[in-house]
């Protein structure tokens, strides 16, 4: 009897204590999300009353708005480039750090610190590094006899430059990879060794398969994050040159808070939602083909 009363009390407390999160979800996630979907079909521009205009906003994107197309292109280009480059670099560094190196905490800190640098501070720093006349990067290129680049000041170079900069911030992923690597059972490596395998076999047939769940996690988070890049466009390039770095969230920001086109900005946000959702769905759907789960094997 005592136990039973404890349980009913438990349910009461459980709901009360979970209430902040549930209310928060309703007020700051679900409600605004529905509102966005409704407003996306209106022409609301803050001062006027909103009118329902059907798919007008979406037609405008596809037919009239060339910045929208540039923005989609710039964002996908950046996202794909930075996700692939950061994952490869983060994995490589984590793999090397996992070779029982001395001074691991020091190395880990060095590779991790850039990722917690305030976006505004790193943006300022990188503008200065990218400076075509006095920046460090061109000085290094020149030292090696390579041609100087215009970096973020050139339409073609701006996205590769920002991808390059994003590699510098891969530390969060690296730490997650490192933890994953440390969790790979030692016996598996020993088994390969007994079978006469070398380091490549260990890497290819133990490390990579055992790490696929971690790679999967980092991939999904990196896709979601990279599609929402804002600060570098806001601070460093203002979306230029010639809209080549008009990142999508920055364009939403401009539409809503500079031009006051709230309805149109909501429609843009809906498209962003659909794009991110489809990218993550593709990754999720592909996961049975390449992500290895211990529990699936046991079953």
């Amino acid at each position: 009897m005592n136990k039973k009363s404890l349980y009913s009390n438990e349910a009461k407390w459980g709901i009360i204590l979970a209430l902040p999160a549930i209310l928060g979800f309703l007020i700051w996630t679900l409600g605004p999300m529905i509102a966005s979907f409704v407003l996306g079909f209106t022409d609301w521009n803050v001062v006027s009353t909103p009118h329902f205009i059907g798919i007008g906003n979406f037609r405008r994107m596809l037919v009239e708005d060339f910045i929208f197309k540039k923005s989609i292109y710039a964002t996908i280009y950046y996202s794909v480039g930075s996700v692939i480059a950061s994952i490869i670099f983060a994995f490589l560094v984590a793999f090397l750090l996992n070779q029982k190196v001395k001074g691991l905490p020091l190395f880990r800190t060095i590779f991790y610190l850039p990722s917690i640098t305030p976006a505004i501070a790193s943006a300022m720093l990188w503008i200065w590094l990218f400076n075509p006349d006095f920046g460090l990067l061109n000085q290094i290129l020149q030292r090696f006899g390579l041609p100087r680049l215009l970096w973020i000041y050139d339409e073609k170079q701006v996205i590769p430059s920002l991808i390059f900069m994003s590699i510098w911030g891969m530390g969060g992923m690296m730490v997650i990879f490192l933890a994953g690597l440390q969790g790979v059972p030692q016996e598996l490596y020993e088994a390969v060794e007994i079978d006469g395998g070398n380091w490549w076999h260990r890497f290819r047939y133990v490390t990579i398969p055992m790490m696929t769940p971690t790679i999967f996690f980092n991939l999904v988070m990196a896709i979601i994050g990279s599609f929402q890049v804002f600060t570098s466009a806001y601070i460093m390039t203002s979306g230029g040159p010639n809209y080549a770095s008009m990142f999508y969230v920055y364009y939403i920001y401009l539409s809503a808070f500079r031009y006051g086109q709230m309805g149109y900005a909501c429609a843009l946000a809906i498209i962003l939602f659909i794009i991110i959702l489809s990218f993550t769905l593709v990754v999720f759907k592909s996961s049975p083909y390449w992500v290895y789960y211990e529990s699936a094997r046991r079953r």
Partner: peptide, 10 residues
């Protein structure tokens, strides 16, 4: 999974 841009304006 929800991009913050979706909830930003409302």
């Amino acid at each position: 999974m929800l991009p913050y841009a979706v909830t930003l304006i409302p």
